[in-house]
Design a protein around this nucleic acid. Structure first.
Length: 477
RNA sequence: GGCCCUAUCGUCUAGUGGUUUAGGACAUCGCCCUCUCACGGCGAAAACCCGGGUUCGAAUCCCGGUAGGGUCACCA
């Protein structure tokens, strides 16, 4: 039996980073076993659907390089892969259950449902549908339907039954069927609910392993019941722990930071770093290695080894990983990746010399700007910093002599600059820390930069000279 | 609240009854390198939620408590 996994997102908003994590696991597991990874769009809630929602999903998955074998844009033998185009399947199977008395029509109104809720809550019970149409005569129901009355189809959950299913990560999980309510399967607008649609589609699409979020554990009994009602073989389930907010309070949410998958890339994270981060969040390879690429992950990933508890999505490790991946890039490749993050006024010709200088200082690609701004734009200088460890007289003298020495240089390579400046420093016995820092601030306006001489060389003789002159002429000294 | 899941350093984890003075990574701190920052190297501090069992022996098994998370829709 070939392994078939799927990702089944809803086009109801930005693609969540957690969906990428889920996609990654499903993708890896399918590939590991030479199977297929399927993308299926679960757009059965017309009220929550957003414009361009499917496109968002497709773009995010592609941006992270998690391509699917069957699904939108690709097709496949079990299509269509968009649920709103599969309505007749759901209708047919819901009907089948009604015919076999495993499901029933229900005409309960919103008001009645709300009243039930309130009454249940009042006595401290879980708010649930009370089964008022469970035994309603079928003939009467059909008559009301013929008359045009809106209805839903509900699952007739058997009483006093133990529902057991096996989870790859947690083992056996048991529920009492009396705890399961008569779930709506087909809504009054003719669309299926998630529960009917997943079961029908996972079966029809021959999905063998369902890896999905832990939040689905409590609805799995409904799915088990459905599989049993249809007489279909069940897939293997693996419920993956959810991501928690950095403060550990609740599921990772937009309110407490970025959750949109594409935003991470736009903020300058490398897709391979994000993927790597997602891999080791809640799972480690046998040798405890933390840096691994997709191929290695595919080879070594086993859902049974995923940790059982929810994990905090902590950006610190991502930041570290991103730096690791940036440093691994060749200069040429880094240059290519940096393109979208280079501000429009940046002088192209400096780029090749700048990249090696900032490579080990970048946490994200977006840091490029702040690390290089002073190379091409005149910085504002804080004179207090200039005078931090020396008198105005000394600083003035240092600046003047440095200016003269640099002005007369024919060669402004970093070696030439270094030679001249070191000579000055030694000749006058200036303290290195003070002198170099003063110069750094004078030329760049910053306290932390790449090495001074390279930096000056990249800025260029004319500009360095002009910046020094300006300081000497200013009244602040 | 009912039901379900979970519980090792701040964070992610290794550990599957004795090999453990509980290991690694990130973060933190210190030292080295050094013109600053970063990179790199070395080092430090830092955890088995609590209480009962089982056992010669428990981070590891069982039970209870506690805490956290999830879920209770004609949303997925």
């Amino acid at each position: 039996m070939t392994v078939r996994t799927r990702l089944a997102p809803s086009p109801t908003g930005r693609m969540h980073i957690g969906s990428i994590a889920m996609a990654l696991k499903n993708y890896a597991f399918a590939k590991k076993h030479g199977g297929q990874f399927i993308l299926r769009i679960e757009d059965t809630d017309k009220t929550r659907e957003i414009e361009d929602g499917i496109n968002e999903i497709v773009r995010a998955l592609k941006a992270y390089g998690l391509d699917w074998d069957e699904g939108p844009e690709k097709g496949g033998p079990y299509g269509p892969y968009i649920q709103s185009q599969r309505l007749e399947f759901y209708k047919k199977y819901a009907q089948k259950l009604v015919d076999e008395a495993k499901a029933y029509y229900c005409f309960a109104t919103k008001e009645e449902l709300e009243k039930m809720r309130q009454e249940a809550l009042a006595v401290g019970k879980p708010p649930r549908y009370n089964g008022m149409y469970r035994d309603y005569p079928l003939e009467k129901a059909k008559k009301r339907i013929r008359a045009g009355e809106p209805y839903v189809i509900r699952l007739k959950v058997p009483k006093d039954q133990e529902i057991v299913f096996h989870d790859l990560i947690r083992g056996e999980i048991k529920f009492d069927s009396n705890e399961v309510s008569d779930q709506v399967l087909l809504k009054s607008d003719g669309y299926p609910t998630y529960h009917l649609a997943v079961v029908v589609d996972d079966h029809l699409m021959k999905i063998t392993h369902v890896m999905r979020g832990e939040e689905w554990i409590s609805s799995t009994p409904k799915h088990v019941l459905l599989y049993q009602a249809f007489g279909w073989p069940m897939p293997t389930w693996a419920h993956i722990p959810v991501f928690l907010n950095p403060d550990g309070k609740g599921k990772m949410s937009k309110r407490k930071g970025d959750v949109a998958a594409l935003d991470f890339l736009e903020k300058g994270y490398l897709k391979e770093a994000v993927l790597n981060f997602l891999m080791i969040l809640g799972w480690t390879p046998k040798d405890q290695r933390e840096i691994l690429n997709l191929d290695e992950y595919v080879r070594e990933f086993n859902p049974a080894d995923i940790s059982h508890n929810s994990v905090i999505f902590d950006l610190k490790k991502l930041n570290w990983l991103n730096g690791v991946y940036i440093r691994k890039l060749s200069d040429a490749k880094l240059k290519k990746r940096l393109k979208p993050f280079i501000p429009s006024g940046f002088p192209e010709k400096k780029l090749d010399r700048v990249i090696p200088l900032i490579k080990e200082r970048l946490v994200t690609l977006a840091d490029f700007d702040k690390l290089t701004r002073f190379l091409w734009q005149q910085p504002s200088i804080d004179s207090k910093l200039l005078l931090k460890k020396a008198t105005p007289e000394l600083v003035k003298k240092q600046l003047k002599l440095t200016l003269e020495a640099l002005e007369s240089l024919d060669d402004f390579s970093d070696q030439a600059v270094e030679q001249v400046i070191r000579k000055l420093q030694e000749k006058h016995g200036w303290r290195k820390r003070q002198y170099f820092m003063m110069l750094r601030v004078a030329v760049t306006g910053e306290k932390a930069t790449p090495p001074l001489f390279e930096t000056m060389s990249v800025i260029g003789q004319e500009e360095v000279v002009s910046r020094l002159k300006e300081i000497l002429n200013s009244k602040n000294l």
